[in-house]
Computed example of a mutant assay.
Amino acid sequence: MKLCEGRIAIVTGAGRGLGKAHALMLAKHGAKVVVNDLGSSADGIGQDTTPAEAVVAEIRAAGGEAVADASNVANWEGAKSLIDTAVSHFGGLDILVNNAGILRDRMLINMTEQEWDSVTTVHLKGTFAPTHHAANYWRQQTKDGKKVDARVINTSSHSGLFCNIGQANYAAAKAGIASFSLVAARELQRYGVTVNAIAPRATTRMTEGLGQWTPEQLERRDPEWIAALVTWLASSQSSAVSGRVFEAWGFGYSVAESWQHGPLTEASKNPETLGPEITRIVGEARKNAGIDRDTWMDI
């Protein structure tokens, strides 16, 4: 039996890059897939159904089941329509992979309001809205006495976790997705739903031109390395794993450890006395983690 045999999945932003890899891998392992993609450019401009339709054709040619969907996941009704498509076309929903995203990089002193709003809306609302509607579907299933074994897999980023310069909008949204995933995991466990997130490193149209890669680095940045983890997280085998953020690429998978309580000092209502003790605890605290990791190859 295949890893996701008979399970019904939605993948947003599945027309290209990571989303496409997720959709193909899920279908390969037996899932029926709703391939959602607006078909916009990497900065969110335009709309084209061709990429999603091409992925559906590829899945069907390999003997799988898939349907294309062009709903805007950052739109409340669009997100609801996406969930309804899975239920009406395949008869249910077991897996939601929130992957849709855009980039509009700019140093914050030059960033426009529209560049901030567009990126945070697509990433944050585009994760929240489908999850909200999916969660309500699963909640109703449990109320109807049906067993739910569902998965939400969100897409955070190393930029969100470790703060990349020039991406204040993107990093803020991706950090928000990581925190959202932990909260959602706690709230939805009662309905039989696990929620996890990934922070992937892969070569896609959003990362092309950002570095000079060796052949080995290019291979280790193949989206299939990440899609394999997503497919396992989407399976019934992962039922004990929830509320985690995974760093993922071809050099390995790691559990990203969230904010931790650090050194402590006594509080005071007199700010004039704070200096020595605040200086002490800052000195004792671990430094913030950087975008690169010493034990992995530098990207």
Rank of each mutant, 00 (worst) to 15 (best):
V73G: 01
T207F: 04
R220M: 15
P223H: 10
V97S: 13
T121L: 05
V33H: 07
M111P: 14
W76C: 05
A199E: 06
A256I: 14
V195P: 07
G13F: 06
A168C: 11
V122P: 00
D84M: 11
N98I: 04
G17T: 10
V241W: 09
L103K: 08
V97L: 14
I83D: 08
N72Y: 08
Y191A: 09
E115R: 03
V55S: 06
H123K: 03
A100Q: 05
S71F: 02
L161K: 00
H89T: 12
L124S: 12
L182Y: 08
A256P: 03
A227K: 01
G192H: 06
T265V: 15
T207Y: 02
Q189P: 02
L96D: 09
V87G: 06
A100F: 01
T12Q: 04
L38S: 01
D37L: 04
E208F: 12
A54H: 03
A168G: 09
T50F: 13
D298Y: 12
F246P: 00
K32A: 14
A234L: 06
A248Y: 04
L18T: 06
N169Q: 03
P130D: 05
N288Q: 06
T265C: 13
K287L: 07
V148W: 12
A202I: 08
S88I: 06
W138F: 15
K174G: 03
D84W: 08
L274G: 01
T273P: 05
A52Y: 04
K20H: 02
A62Q: 14
E65M: 15
E277R: 09
N99M: 15
